[in-house]
Amino acid sequence: MLTTFQMQALLTAAVWTAGLSLIAFVLGGAVGLLIAVMRVSANRVLRGIAFTYIQIVQGTPLLVMMMLAFFGLSILGFDLTPFAAASFAMVIYSSAYFGEIWRGGILAVPKTQWEAAECLALHPVQRFWLVIIPQGLRISTPPTVGFMVQIVKNTSLASVIGVAELTYTSKLINNSTFQPFIIFSVVAVLYFCMCYPLAWWSRKLEDKLNVAHR
């Protein structure tokens, strides 16, 4: 069985996993919103930049992005700690997906809502932020939360660059105790405890939105 010390180490690692996830949610969400807005902008250059960004990020494995952020950037002179590099990669990764999810939500807002806002003499920027964005984000809430589950699970890839999160720590413990079944079961449960509330919330939101749209 696991010792108290090992259990404590796993719980501490779980906090790092949660922290990395939170950074991806918050900073990735902020950058993602910017990407989504650029993606639906009337300006062709902005649209093109956002499109290219999304294509490149979605076409690159997160694992490779982690390595690039840690080893690649250090060659360029940015000496990031493993956690900083992992955060950087997670933010890039999540922002591209958030951007694409929210773009879909924004485009799903009926054109008549733009018209109604225009006819009330709202400025184009006001139309967008007061009328369209709140509805677009609401429409995309279920897939957003669904993707947050992916983010939590994908933080495990940060183990390859030595971030002491859940997966990395569990491997360390396993290397000294050789109890893979017990250790990885505990780790699976810990991941599940973080993901399940998100999945549950996502389903809940989906039900609620379906009722509202009848």
């Binding site: 008549t112 809502q113 018209e115 109604a116 806002a117 009328v131 709140p134 509805q135 609401r138 509202a212």
Partner: peptide, 9 residues
């Protein structure tokens, strides 16, 4: 408008 177009949020 025919379809009201109130802001649902």
């Amino acid at each position: 408008f025919q379809s009201y177009n109130l802001f649902p949020h």
